[in-house]
Design a protein around this nucleic acid. Sequence first.
DNA 1: CACCGCATGTAACGTGTTACATGATTCA
DNA 2: TGAATCATGTAACACGTTACATGCGGTG
Lengths: 179, 179
Amino acid sequence: MTVRSAILAILAQGPCYGYQLRLEYERRTGGSVNVGQVYTTLDRLERDGLASKGQADAAGHVYYSITAAGAAEAMGWIVAPVERAPRDELAVKLALALTLPGADAAGLIAAQRERTTAEVARLRAEQHDDVARALVADALVRSYEAELAWLEHCESVIATVEPYALAAETPKRGRPSRA
Amino acid sequence: MTVRSAILAILAQGPCYGYQLRLEYERRTGGSVNVGQVYTTLDRLERDGLASKGQADAAGHVYYSITAAGAAEAMGWIVAPVERAPRDELAVKLALALTLPGADAAGLIAAQRERTTAEVARLRAEQHDDVARALVADALVRSYEAELAWLEHCESVIATVEPYALAAETPKRGRPSRA
DNA sequence: CACCGCATGTAACGTGTTACATGATTCA
DNA sequence: TGAATCATGTAACACGTTACATGCGGTG
C-alpha cells in the first residue's frame, strides 16, 4: 500500500491533481510512480471515502481533496511502523539454492554481489541537495551493504558446511513428515 | 514472484502435490505460504506451460511435474540476482514525514525502532538446526540492524537540520515546476 | 464423539504493472 | 513542423491475501 498511502499523505498537505501528485511524490522521495497508477489510485481513494474529486478548474486540472477520514488515515499511516515483508526474495532464493541438488548457489551469490556492488557505487555517486532524498538513498546504501556482508557470511558458511549438512531429501511420495 | 518461482524450484527436484509443496517451502525457507495460494499458483504454472498436472494417485494426491521449460526457468531464477524493490516503504514514509508539515517523523522513528528491536530479539532467540533456515534468519537480523542504524542516523540528521532545511512548499495551483 | 491435521480447491478482492488512447501546450 | 512534456484516463493482467467449502482419517 505504499503508493496509495503516500499519495494520500501528500494530499493531506493540500488539494492536488493527478499529474502533480506524481511529481510531488518523485520530488519528495526520489522514487518514481507510473502516472496511470496515480489515477486509478485516486479513484480507489475516492471510492473508499478518503479523498474527493473536484470539478476541473479553468486550466482543466482535476483537483482531489482529502476528507477527514483520509487525513486521519494518512497521519496514522505515517506514525505506524511498517509491516515486515513476509518474504525476503534473496534469502528464499538462497535457501532453495542450498537445498536443491544441482542448484548453483555460488553463482547466485556472485551475481547478486556484482549487482549490489554496482548499485551501491551508483548510489554513492549521487548528489543530494535535499535532506529527505539523501536519507532515502542512505537507507538503500545501508541495506545493500548489509546484504553484501550477509553474502560473504553465506559463502563462508557454505564453504565449511556444504558437503554433508545441506542434503535435502527429495520430497517423498506418500505421507510427508512434518519438519 | 517469489512464491511462484519458489514453488517451481521445488518442483524441479521432483513431482509434488500441493500440500506437500507448502510443507517443503516452509521446511526449506522457514517462511509460510497460504495453502490456497499454492493451488492457484499451480494452476498458473500449468497455464504457462511450466508444470503439468497429473492424475490423482491411489492416495488421492494430485502430483504436479515440472516441464522442460519450467526447469529452465527455475534454474534461471535461482542464479538471477534479485531485482531491488523499487520502493522501500519505510524510507518513503520517512521522506514524507519530513516533507509534510505537522507529520510526526520522530514518532515514526520511535515506533519503528521499537518494533524492529523486538523483532531482532525474537529472531536471535530462535534455534536453527538447519543451515539454510539459519541463513535466512541471519539475513533478516542483518537487515534489521542496518535499519536500526539508519534510524539513528535519521534522528541525528533531523536534529541538526530540521528547522530550516526541510520546509516543503505546499504543492502550488497552476503549473508545477520540475524538481 | 469432537477435534485436529491432511488435502484440494474456489471466490472475491487488493495493490500494482504495463501498455494503450487521446488531446493540449510548449519550444527548438 | 515535429518532438517533448503536460494531463487524464482505460484495459488487461499479475501476484498475493483472506476467507470459505468440502471431505478424509486418526486420536484423545
